[in-house]
């Protein structure tokens, strides 16, 4: 009945403008929740308020059913991984990891035990005596993770932990963090602007826009049933096509659009973007952009007219006025 972490009516203003505007969500124990959104949407501010590094202007934060607003960050029983890693540059890897244990006067033997198990978990054994300056980005990230692991805190906050890493390393770390979280049964709040991270790692995604929640749901719901045009145009590679038609916007994913010879929508090709396994064709239909993902290499000259169509079942509809999802009204386009 009661959730592990609950955030209610959270607000934060900077110079009168709302950075976080009435945010509510609940997280159960052991859940991996991604706070997703473009930069400036308030996701990092929300995380800092949960950590206690910033004070909200209104609202409440409960951990284990108790309000933690009056508690200092160190008393909230949580750990945090920072985007810049926040490693102490003058301390060795080992000292960085046990910094918190020393600050909390954990007995020496216990320190050593936790250090050993954390170091093995993140594979840092050969680097224990190095200084952070001698580590690669990935290794620094592991130190930050180890520091969070040894704290034994049940709640771990991560602030864009992978954004300073290169693409390949990022993919490896994604699965590593996810398996660590499952193994340690951690509750994780994970801030990111990268939809791939959110979609592949999280049990639940909370998508923020301009300080408010656009949608909070499981990853597959985001893909299958976006609640607003913002969500529709944020998720997907490339995101959903939105076509204005009377008082609704029709949404259809590029991967559901196919090229046909007859009885399709007449569109004009703008460009073809070859990406190896697929080609993304960008076309225009009455002022709306429609993208289609086609298999293999397809070279269609710019300016040529082609016909496209899709199954009515893969259509989404949004009200032009409210940008919200509305009940299906199929058959609006000429080919259906």
């Amino acid at each position: 009945m009661s959730s592990f972490l609950s955030v209610s009516g959270l607000c934060r203003y900077y110079d009168g403008a709302a950075a976080v505007d009435n945010i509510n969500f609940e997280v159960s124990e052991g859940e991996f929740v991604a706070l997703l959104g473009p930069s400036g949407c308030g996701k990092s501010t929300t995380l800092k308020m949960i950590a206690g590094l910033e004070q909200p202007d209104a609202g409440d934060i409960n951990i284990n059913g108790k309000s933690v607003l009056s508690e200092s960050p160190g008393k909230r029983n949580l750990s945090m991984v920072f985007q810049s890693y926040a490693l102490f540059p003058h301390l060795s890897v080992k000292e960085n990891i046990v910094f918190g244990l020393k600050a909390r006067s954990v007995p020496k033997a216990e320190q050593k035990k936790r250090l050993d198990s954390a170091v093995d978990m993140v594979d840092l054994r050969p680097h224990l005596d190095k200084k952070p300056g001698q580590l690669s980005g990935g290794q620094s990230q592991r130190v930050a993770l180890a520091r969070s692991i040894v704290s034994n805190a049940p709640l771990c906050l991560m602030d864009e932990p992978l954004s300073n890493l290169d693409t390949k390393l990022r993919a490896d770390m994604r699965s590593e963090i996810r398996s660590l979280q499952k193994k340690l049964k951690l509750t994780v709040i994970y801030v990111t602007h990268d939809q791939v991270e959110a979609m592949s790692m999280a049990d639940k995604i909370i998508l923020l826009n301009k300080g408010s929640i656009e949608q909070a749901a499981e990853p597959e719901i985001f893909y299958e049933k976006p609640e607003t045009t913002f969500v529709a145009s944020f998720i997907g590679h490339p995101p959903m096509n939105l076509i204005s038609c009377e008082d609704v916007q029709i949404g259809v994913r590029p991967e559901h659009v196919s090229l046909v010879d007859e009885s399709g929508l007449n569109v004009v090709v703008n460009e073809s973007d070859y990406q190896g396994s697929e080609t993304i064709i960008t076309t225009t239909y009455q002022g709306s952009i429609i993208r289609a993902i086609l298999e293999g290499k397809q070279s269609i000259p710019s300016g040529s007219s082609i016909k496209v169509r899709w199954e009515p079942a893969s259509e989404h509809h949004f009200s032009t006025k409210t940008s919200k999802r509305v009940d299906t009204r199929p058959g609006l386009l000429p080919f259906q």
Binding site: P73, K75, S79, F88, H90, F99, K102, A103, R147
Partner: peptide, 29 residues
């Protein structure tokens, strides 16, 4: 000095004296 270092220390419940002795002062060396 990166303010995130102080944030990291605050999360670990480090006292003001610990922060000065183990972070600020060494970084001022």
């Amino acid at each position: 000095i990166d303010t995130n270092l102080y944030h990291a220390a605050a999360i670990e419940n480090a006292s003001k004296w610990t922060v000065f002795r183990r972070i600020t002062f060494p970084l001022l060396m």
